[in-house]
Amino acid sequence: MDTANERVSREALPHGWRLVLLQETDSTNLELRRRRDSDPGEGLAVVAARQTSGRGRRGREWTSPEGNLYISIRLDSRPGGLPTAAQLSFVAAVALTDALRDVAPHVPIRCKWPNDLLVNGAKISGILLESDDPYVIVGIGVNLVWSPPPGQALYPATNLRQEGAVVSPETLAAALCRHLAACTQLWRDGGFAPIRSAWLEVAQGRGQTVTARLHDGSEQQGEFVDLDADGALVLQSNMGRIRIMAADVFFGAR
């Protein structure tokens, strides 16, 4: 039912998927959690025109003015469940890359481990996943018309309009749902291998030196050599191979 704050998208969607458009919410990830009982199962996507408390990794604020895309999608982590749920981080990155290539074909997209998309080295989107066992809520923010000015965010940012593409949140949301359904199916049928290959094809900086800043503030540096079977970033340092499972990644030595 459509209300002043809520309407259902009429864009073409995969079978069984629902795309709900809200004027405003606190956070689309929280919104999806609240709908666990009223609209259960995979394929519920919620878009908000504005988020009043959008969040990034580890409690960081995700500034959410109108015009950008703020979307959360509920996926089913089965059959693998929690042990393989983190692979959905790469499923989401590959699907968003494919969706952006659909709606903005001339904009070159690369991916920074694990799932930040970059245009000419600047961050254009952020993806944060939260388990809600057996589901995983995939929260995605894409800078369509606005991005944080230099110095405000941890990483230099850009937006699609600045890169010469005008895309509406609803158009990108529908394209994303279509690719996410396809990539999730690919993951269920073929496991992580096809997703890993697709991700490595768009990965930025393979063979180059990267710096991983860990939670405790320490930094690990090495050549980005691989993505392992779990999705960990594999760096070759002068101390040997390092396996990174959670970090902020920067290119080059620091």
Binding site: A86, L88, S89, L128, L129, E130, V136
Partner: peptide, 9 residues
């Protein structure tokens, strides 16, 4: 537990 930006309580 965080792995690859997936957070699990």
């Amino acid at each position: 537990i965080e792995a690859m930006k997936t957070f699990n309580p």
